[in-house]
Every structure is written in C-alpha cells, then in structure tokens.
Computed example of a mutant assay.
Amino acid sequence: MRPPAMQGIHHVALICSDYKRSKRFYSETLGLPILAEHYRAARQSWKLDLQLPDGSQLELFSFVGAPPRPSRPEAQGLRHLAFAVTDLDAWLAYLQQQGVTTEPVRVDEYTGKRFTFFQDPDGLPLELYQV
C-alpha cells in the first residue's frame, strides 16, 4: 500500500533569539509579507507567520531561554533553508545594499544551477538557489 499524496511544504518553523531583529530581517530585508502575529502570554512567546511566494509559510517563534544552535554547518537538524529565485545577481546586489554578507556564488555540480549562502540574524544558513 502506498501513502496518500502530499501537497508540499506548508511551513518551516524557526526559533529566533531576538524576535524584533528577526521579524525585521524576514519581513523587511527579505520582503516576506506578514500573515499574522500573535503574542502567547502563557509561554512569553511571539509567533509570526510569513508568506512565501509559493503559498507556503515561514513561522518565527521566540522562546525565553532557547539554546543556540549547537554547531555549524553540519549539526543535526535543519541544515539550511533554500529560497528559489530567478535572478541571483539582483538578489546579491540587493543583499549587499542591505549589509548582508553572502558567500561566493557556487554552481550545483548536478544541475548546473547557481546558488549562494548567507545567514539570518541568528546565524541560520539561508540559501538562494537560481531556478
């Protein structure tokens, strides 16, 4: 018996160390529209839902005392979050204007597609992958 069909990724959840800084980075620097924002008093935690162009979402959470990522880049868990872009060079220029440092552009040895990595305010590796 085969499993039922999946429709895709609904959301990716991230825990940030500085909620306001991460909210500004993802909503203003990366330009993701805010869908909803909630403060959960019982947990002293913010939850921010951001819309990705394909309909999936990015959730940002703040939790008091959340431990930092143990090591990088090969720690277990989420390795990186990749965003599909059509114009990598335009994104590189834009991120540079925003003061965001990117790694040198690489080429995927299997697909021939160009990509680069950069970090969010908490050091989470983010990738821009030209499609």
Results as ranks from 00 to 15, higher is better:
M1N: 12
P4A: 12
A5G: 13
M6N: 15
Q7W: 06
G8N: 11
A13L: 01
L14M: 07
L14Y: 02
L14W: 01
I15C: 14
I15T: 09
D18P: 02
Y19T: 08
F25W: 03
S27I: 05
L30R: 13
G31W: 02
L32G: 04
H38E: 15
H38N: 14
A42L: 13
A42H: 11
Q44K: 09
S45I: 15
L48K: 02
L48A: 01
L48C: 01
Q51K: 00
L52W: 10
P53E: 05
E59L: 01
F61Q: 04
F61M: 02
S62W: 03
S62M: 06
V64G: 07
A66K: 10
R72D: 04
R72H: 03
R72A: 02
P73Q: 05
E74M: 07
A75C: 07
Q76S: 12
G77D: 02
G77S: 02
L81E: 07
V85K: 08
T86Y: 05
A93T: 13
Y94L: 15
Q97V: 03
G99H: 06
G99E: 12
T101R: 11
E103G: 06
E103P: 06
E103Y: 01
P104K: 07
V105T: 01
E109P: 12
Y110Q: 15
G112T: 05
K113R: 14
F117C: 02
Q119W: 15
Q119A: 14
D120C: 00
D120A: 00
D120R: 00
G123S: 12
L124S: 01
P125G: 13
P125Y: 13
L126V: 10
Q130E: 05
V131C: 13
